[in-house]
Amino acid sequence: MTAQAAHLIGCRTCGRVWPEGTPTCGRCGARLRAIRDGHSLQAVWAWLLAGMVCYVPANLYPMLNTSTLLDKTTNTVIGGAVELWQGGNYGVAAIVFVASVMIPIGKFIAIGWLALAIGHQNIPGRHRHLRLLHIVEFIGRWSMVDVFVVAILSALVQLGVVATIEPGPAAASFALSVAFTMLSAQSFDPRTIWTTRTP
């Protein structure tokens, strides 16, 4: 039996149960949300869209500007991974590529799919979808790795004419994209996975 069927509302933060219509949880103070208030799904789509929009300039603009005695180069997110690959660091190149390309895009697809599939799933599908949401939430933060790499490199490599690394504008939009996608995943109410759509 679900809380909703019993005309109760469960707190997503602490688990305490309250009568339907209670605005905030009396135990932990969190706002109580009914499953079917539609607000959750709107927020998911809004954050997801914002995340996808920010991901475009994150890939078009340079992430790193490197200047040495001899030349100046700029690197995009993908360019950085390619450079590592060409330098023979296959493992690290793969990690950077997974963290900054595959995980963000995978998350866009996963969240969109989860949101569209609400109410259309059989029981094993619901278990799979819940697991997918757990994975998306767990993995979200790890996409930030490239933003930190750029910060470390540009703080460290400040050697005047010998070599200087400056961060590029893509770093900001990349960080925003990661943050928006995390907010999108957090707004996703997993309880909706278990609802059946009423016509």
Binding site: T2, A3, A6, G10, C11, G15, V17, I35, L130, P190
Partner: peptide, 8 residues
């Protein structure tokens, strides 16, 4: 109530 599926 389970925060992930609303089961009581």
């Amino acid at each position: 109530a389970c925060p992930f599926c609303d089961a009581l």
